[in-house]
Simulated assay, not measured.
Amino acid sequence: MAVLAGLAATAIFQNLPREAKKLTLTPVVRAVLEDAGSPRAGAANPDVTIVVFTDYQCSVCKATAPALQQLLASDKKVQVIFKDWPILGEASTIAAHAALAADRQGEYLAFHSALMAAPMKLNAEHVRRIAVSTGLDVEQLTADEAAHAAEIEAQLTRHNTQAFSLGLRGTPAYLVGPYLIEGGLNEARLAQAVRRARAAGPPAPP
């Protein structure tokens, strides 16, 4: 069911109006922001936190990933929390497991970026080749996937629960400060969302 929903939502997201919904710091939002297992990049003490739900076979995610990477490079007051949400089939799940295993090497962001830049049709061999090209220790990656399989699966389950608790209909989706935005954000729209979040501050108590 989640796969079908993800496929349908991804197919229309490029044409969705990107209207932001302002959220308060509910238990759901707190769980999203405070999940220690979700990979993070950027500022240790940010003034804007961005949460992004993605799938490695989502075409809109791939098209808009460079905007997020550029923001991390140019804005040193932003932190990004990555929520791998594999809803587009087995290959998405394989890639998400590998990405969270790469986080054990401290290489999540590099591997995530390489997976997003890869052609759409992924499989286990493609994921392994991308790991090699990114410079990961592939033997360690395989070992970590096995040793931490239960933890990784639990993390992905939490991401799935968080996505559905927020009412997300597919990938990509962002929480930029207090604003929930579904659909892809290009560089200009992302910068606009960050400016609005800075003006508003973090999610406030309900």
Results as ranks from 00 to 15, higher is better:
155 Q>A: 10
152 I>L: 00
203 P>F: 06
8 A>M: 12
103 D>T: 01
120 M>Q: 14
113 S>Q: 11
111 F>H: 07
13 F>Q: 03
47 D>E: 13
143 A>C: 07
34 E>R: 10
59 S>R: 09
160 N>K: 11
4 L>S: 10
59 S>C: 05
93 T>V: 15
112 H>K: 01
183 G>A: 08
85 W>M: 10
192 Q>K: 11
29 V>N: 02
43 A>P: 05
18 R>A: 07
155 Q>L: 14
127 V>R: 00
63 A>Q: 09
89 G>S: 10
3 V>N: 10
8 A>D: 11
186 N>E: 09
83 K>V: 07
196 R>N: 11
4 L>P: 02
117 A>S: 08
61 C>H: 03
150 A>V: 15
15 N>H: 15
158 R>G: 00
153 E>L: 08
111 F>M: 03
82 F>Q: 03
2 A>C: 02
177 G>Q: 13
53 F>N: 00
132 V>T: 11
14 Q>P: 09
88 L>K: 04
194 V>D: 02
25 L>V: 01
201 G>D: 04
96 A>E: 10
12 I>A: 14
72 L>I: 14
80 V>H: 02
70 Q>P: 07
197 A>F: 00
193 A>N: 05
6 G>Q: 11
79 Q>T: 13
31 A>F: 13
161 T>M: 12
14 Q>M: 05
175 L>M: 08
96 A>Q: 02
49 T>G: 01
162 Q>G: 05
9 A>P: 01
153 E>G: 13
67 A>Y: 15
72 L>M: 12
52 V>P: 01
19 E>L: 11
132 V>K: 13
136 L>G: 04
54 T>P: 00
162 Q>K: 00
176 V>C: 12
145 E>K: 02
71 L>N: 05
30 R>Q: 15
106 G>N: 03
20 A>Q: 07
144 D>M: 08
202 P>A: 15
33 L>Y: 03
172 P>I: 07
161 T>N: 12
174 Y>S: 14
34 E>I: 10
145 E>H: 03
